[in-house]
């Protein structure tokens, strides 16, 4: 299936995608240099699409039938058969709109998504992207074509944080939807009930999916540095709360720590890759660190 083409007419979008793409490329460049290609050459018999011939293209893929009919030269592009069919699940709930620094969690998540998509596509693997909040908002099926990156980028550029989160329900739905074995890359703040969440992650595992969880959190969410009297206005329909943050800091951090530990433990128990990425850390370093670690373990 052809990926939805991004709206290139919107310079903002264009800028965003370009920037994102460039960033993604940059991030994975070092990694890619050492990467091995898929043991399979990715030669699939499944026809994907035609494109006009340009000098230099391999003539063996020339579609003579079309030439005979139209007197025009077209190259056949095929769906490459890969070892990996991956889906990037991007949390676009309202809580992802929070950011204490230059970028929000969503922006960081998009960058992670673009980086991973870029990496996967460079491997000649297939990648799709799903955005969700309390339900699936958009679904780009996993493909490996050249246009897939644009489709991913286009989805990312259109991603806006809104609505409450119901991560677990969405994950259960998606787990049922992914029929073939593959890789699920979850990029979310995972603000949901940990038990329900872990159950939904387990569901992916039962469906023979490899799961990577990028737990995106804001720096302030993990440090809670507030001093003055603060009115916290909750996103996702939570009530407002006027408190002295110093009074709650210790207890809050304990809660966060407990939550993260619970998730982490659950992921480990279910052989799910877990990486916590905060908005204050340089993404290239964090991703590189994670991916290098994954490579070292011999996993894709």
């Amino acid at each position: 299936m052809a990926a939805k083409k991004p709206d290139f007419l919107d310079p903002k979008v264009l800028n965003k995608i370009t920037r994102l793409d460039l960033k993604a490329r940059h991030i994975v460049e070092g990694f890619v240099a050492g990467m091995h290609k898929s043991p399979y050459h990715g030669f699939s018999v499944e026809f994907a699409e035609h494109r006009e011939y340009t000098p230099g293209d391999d003539l063996k893929h020339l579609d003579w039938k079309v030439f005979g009919r139209s007197d025009r030269l077209f190259i056949k592009e095929y769906e490459l058969e890969t070892n990996l069919r991956s889906h990037i699940l991007l949390d676009c709930s309202e809580s992802m709109d929070y950011g204490s620094g230059e970028s929000t969690k969503l922006e960081l998540a998009c960058l992670i998504a673009a980086s991973m998509a870029h990496l996967i596509l460079r491997q000649q693997d297939a990648v799709g992207i799903v955005t969700f909040d309390k339900e699936v908002r958009s679904f780009v099926p996993s493909h490996s074509g050249k246009g897939q990156m644009s489709a991913v980028l286009g989805t990312l550029s259109g991603a806006k944080a809104a609505n409450k989160t119901d991560v677990s329900t969405v994950f259960h739905q998606l787990a049922e939807r992914f029929t073939r074995k593959g890789l699920v890359i979850i990029i979310s703040d995972l603000f949901d009930d940990p038990d329900r969440l872990l159950k939904s992650l387990q569901h992916f595992r039962h469906r023979r999916q490899d799961v990577i969880v990028f737990h995106v959190l804001d720096e302030y969410e993990v440090t809670f540095p507030f001093q003055r009297m603060t009115l916290f206005e909750g996103l996702e329909e939570y009530p407002k709360l006027l408190v002295d943050p110093r009074a709650l800091r210790q207890a809050y951090l304990e809660e966060v720590e407990r939550f993260v530990s619970r998730i982490k433990r659950g992921c480990v128990l279910n052989s799910i890759d877990y990486a916590q990425i905060t908005t204050d850390r340089p993404l290239d370093i964090e991703l590189t660190k994670y991916l290098a670690g994954r490579l070292a373990l011999g996993r894709r």
Binding site: L235, L241, Y252
Partner: peptide, 27 residues
């Protein structure tokens, strides 16, 4: 003092509420 505060949009309300519940009486 209570009249002077800053406003912050906050995503991790759940944890804040949990912390408040835990410490309210002591505070």
């Amino acid at each position: 003092h209570r009249q002077k505060y800053r406003r912050v949009k906050w995503a991790a309300m759940e944890f804040l509420l949990a912390a408040l519940k835990k410490t309210q009486r002591r505070l």
